[in-house]
Computed example of a mutant assay.
Amino acid sequence: MSRHDSPNLHVTSESFRDGQILPPAQRSGKMRAGGNDESPQLSWSGAPAGTKGYAVTVFDPDAPGRGGFWHWAVLDLPAGATSLPAGAGAEGGRLLPAGALQLKNDGGFHGYLGAAPPPGHGPHRYIATVYALDVEHLGLEAGFSPAKLEAKLAGHVLARGTLTGIFER
């Protein structure tokens, strides 16, 4: 079964609603977009039997250049996890479950980088995706890029769900 055929997880957030504008907390301060670089609160349900772990990403497919922009990637979340608190993507990951691993985002650090589209570039979509996986650990190390995570996920996704926030400057 390809990841596009996999069942859906139900993903919600206390930080923003699907299709709505991202609040300042989820926008970037580091990139001068008037925000706090706080990863959104996320909850999910509906994982199929056999789920052994999760991964979560936040991706902007509308970023200029090739391949979009990875804002966050966290993997090796335990099977018992059904949510992440707001701010779990802080550098150091102290609010993440034990054993979870944050990859380096496209801004160059391990953690969540808030929304910061180029001024005048139009609305960008920030797609938070939760993946239910058939493995506890994907075997990646912190030095891997989120772009490589996609290839590693390919054979292990049992279900996935998305939530999209919008932001423009």
Rank of each mutant, 00 (worst) to 15 (best):
Q41G: 13
Q41I: 02
S43C: 15
S45M: 13
S45N: 12
S45L: 14
S45I: 10
G46V: 12
G46C: 11
G46D: 03
G46N: 11
A47G: 12
A47H: 03
P48V: 08
P48C: 12
A49C: 10
A49P: 06
G50T: 09
G50D: 04
G50P: 02
G50I: 08
T51H: 07
T51G: 12
T51L: 07
K52N: 14
K52Q: 14
G53R: 09
G53K: 02
G53H: 07
A55V: 13
V56I: 04
V56M: 03
T57P: 00
V58M: 05
D60A: 15
D60N: 15
D60Q: 12
P61N: 00
D62S: 08
A63S: 11
P64N: 00
P64W: 09
G65T: 08
G65I: 02
R66G: 15
R66Q: 15
R66E: 15
R66I: 15
G67Y: 00
G68T: 09
G68F: 00
G68S: 00
F69W: 05
F69M: 10
W70A: 09
W70R: 10
W72K: 06
W72C: 06
W72L: 05
A73R: 00
V74M: 13
L75D: 08
L75C: 07
L75V: 10
L75Y: 04
L75F: 10
D76W: 10
D76L: 12
D76M: 00
L77R: 09
L77P: 01
L77V: 08
L77S: 01
P78Y: 06
P78N: 02
P78F: 09
P78C: 10
A79E: 01
G80H: 01
A81V: 02
A81C: 09
A81M: 01
T82G: 15
T82Y: 14
T82R: 14
S83H: 03
S83F: 08
S83W: 03
L84V: 02
L84Y: 10
L84H: 04
P85H: 10
P85F: 08
A86C: 09
A86H: 06
G87P: 05
G87D: 08
A88C: 01
A88T: 13
A88R: 12
A88L: 11
G89T: 01
A90L: 00
A90H: 10
A90S: 04
E91R: 15
G92H: 00
